[in-house]
Design a protein around this nucleic acid. Structure first.
Lengths: 183, 183
DNA sequence: TACAAAACAGACCGGTTGTCCGGTTTTGTC
DNA sequence: GACAAAACCGGACAACCGGTCTGTTTTGTA
């Protein structure tokens, strides 16, 4: 006479994994990595500790997955894709800034750049995490540089800045602005 | 026959307070606020828990003191003073960037902007802390704006940007650059 | 149906966290 | 010297942390 387990259960590993990833990335952004406990995630998602540990053996592995899957996608959709599709690098960059500013106005609060928040908090503590974050920055930077070079090749560049330096400035400006916006 | 207490003790509240503040601000910058436990500070400074609690009843009050005393001084010496003493706003800003870049080269590692690190980590969690951080940003911004306006009045401005917007860009650029440098 | 592997459940552990408290010593003041 | 306030001591505390464990259920495969 074990426990009468009358509730049906269906294994959905990918769905459960995604739910955890969603909750984790949201919590990391709104509260920070250290301030988010895995018990918090257990409570908010309803996922049990065993299941969570099955998919993410450690908190660090969870952070790694958030960076490589969720944040990478976010950088891609809000930056890389937008810049690539724009007529010119400069116009694409300006458009992203305006779009983000509009979204922030509607939202009413600033919770920072997802990538920048994590970079600030855990880049210094762990080399593996720092590498994952650096890779995301490299992608971001590469997309801007590629567009600038394409502009130059097409003769569309209003001015001819050093692509690498210009990309760095754009990224630093964006990251810094969202950080200051939090205060 | 209580404990034979043969060690001499001399009360030095201000010195002890400063020692804690030094250790705390260093730890906050290198490891982050959440990652720094007050037991860490007890170990590294040798200050007892009771004494620490006497000066800083809570960890938050310690953070507040670090912001208002240590970080404010740092912003003042590396930014406000430098800009004020420079012949022109633009040259002063460039000089600060160069000086910081040189210091970072010698140091070999980047641990971020002290103000930016704390802003990123705890601005969203507590309104009082956010206010303290915002005040530091306001001072910083005000110093740059004042210098730009002074330049304009003296006819020294090579170009005539909107002072507020320009100051924001400078601060965002600085903060963001140091954040990215960590990754 | 048989069975191994994957997915999930949930209690549990050692260690650490921030905070607080009762007592002792030092210091300023009269 | 008497005495109160401030400074300092050292440990106790409950809550919570990330991680582990054993066991059960589901699923793919043949």
């Amino acid at each position: 006479m074990a426990k009468p387990r009358n509730r049906i259960r269906s294994n959905d590993p990918q769905g459960l994994r995604n739910r955890v990833l969603d909750a984790a990335s949201a919590a990391f952004q709104s509260k920070g990595y250290d301030a988010t406990s895995i018990h918090d995630l257990i409570r908010t998602t309803g996922v049990t500790g065993g299941a969570l540990h099955h998919h993410f053996p450690s908190k660090k592995s969870l952070a790694l997955a958030v960076i490589d899957e969720r944040i990478a996608a976010e950088v891609g959709s809000t930056w890389i894709d937008q810049v690539a599709e724009a007529p010119t690098a400069a116009s694409g960059i300006v458009a992203v800034f305006e779009r983000v500013a509009d979204a922030l106005d509607q939202q009413g609060s600033v919770s920072g750049c997802p990538l920048g928040n994590l970079a600030s908090e855990l880049a210094l503590g762990d080399d593996e995490l720092r590498g994952a974050l650096a890779a995301r920055y490299a992608d971001w930077r590469g997309a801007i540089m590629a567009k600038i070079d394409a502009d130059k090749a097409l003769g569309r560049a209003a001015f001819a800045p050093d692509a690498a330096a210009f990309a760095d400035v754009v990224i630093a400006l964006f990251t810094g602005a969202l950080t200051i916006g939090k205060a």
